[in-house]
Design a protein around this nucleic acid. Structure first.
Length: 230
DNA sequence: AAATGCCGCAACCGCACCAAT
DNA sequence: GATTGGTGCGGTTGCGGCATT
């Protein structure tokens, strides 16, 4: 069983097979496609590299902001974060966080785990415990929502998909229904309404404010269904 | 020009979860 | 309810390229 970097020939084989047949059972795929790889390796290669709906290259400022905000809400739940960043894979987001964003936050004096200023480890900079509670509550709500969304996606996968087409992957990873997606975006939008702008800093003067320092705006700017999780 | 260190990314590994039996 | 197989997720590693000495 081969390991290590994929060759262009292997990529071509995998791509050609999936385009023609869909991936089906990943375990059975390598044999059918004539690859000396395990199914897991094929799956990873497809998801993280070969999928045609993947956007590669530099992350935009907007994307960076989204990642930071969602990480504050969700922690290291990369797959959940990736659902908010179309065309980006969880692996790519994870790598970008670990190599760029984490260091940047650290440099700014913000703990990349708690997203709070390191000098104020116990609570928000407002000194208002309500803010921390709101953030925690929001995170719980979003977490529950994401789980429900994931369930819906799983259920939708049970519906027989169409025969493989050029965009066969859309059958494997169906687009969220209007019933679920807008709500999800609303949460993010609301959250961005609170935090947005704080990361549009000028890297040259480093004149920064902690994102948590304005959390007190949340009470006025959001009307989230906070009670839904309790 | 060569050696060394650092960084970023692709890929692997181990574990958890879920559905089928 | 226990077991098993398939899949997904997050953490970690290894390697190649680039920068520095």
């Amino acid at each position: 069983m081969k390991k290590g970097p994929w060759t262009p020939e292997e990529d071509q084989k995998l791509l050609a097979y999936i385009e023609q047949h869909g991936h089906g059972s990943w375990r059975a795929l390598p044999l059918k496609a004539g690859l000396q790889r395990c199914g897991k390796s094929c799956r990873l290669r497809w998801i993280n590299y070969l999928r045609p709906d993947i956007k590669r290259g530099k992350f935009s400022l907007q994307e960076e902001q989204t990642i930071i905000q969602l990480h504050a809400l969700l922690g290291n739940r990369w797959s959940a974060i990736a659902t908010h960043l179309p065309k980006r894979t969880d692996n790519e987001i994870k790598n970008y966080w670990n190599t760029h964003l984490k260091k940047r936050l650290t440099k700014m004096g913000i703990d990349p785990v708690t997203h709070k200023p390191k000098t104020d480890a116990l609570g928000s900079t407002t000194g208002n415990p309500k803010d921390a509670a709101n953030l925690s509550h929001m995170a719980q709500w979003e977490s529950a929502r994401l789980e429900a969304e994931a369930r819906l996606v799983r259920e939708s996968k049970l519906v027989p998909s169409n025969p493989p087409q050029s965009n066969h992957f859309t059958a494997v990873v169906p687009s969220p229904t209007p019933a679920t997606r807008p709500q999800c975006l609303d949460v993010l939008k609301a959250w961005q309404g609170v935090v947005c702008g704080l990361f549009t800093f000028n890297m040259d003067n480093n004149n920064l404010q902690s994102p948590t320092s304005t959390l007190n705006f949340m009470e006025n700017t959001t009307t989230l269904p906070m009670s839904s999780s309790s």
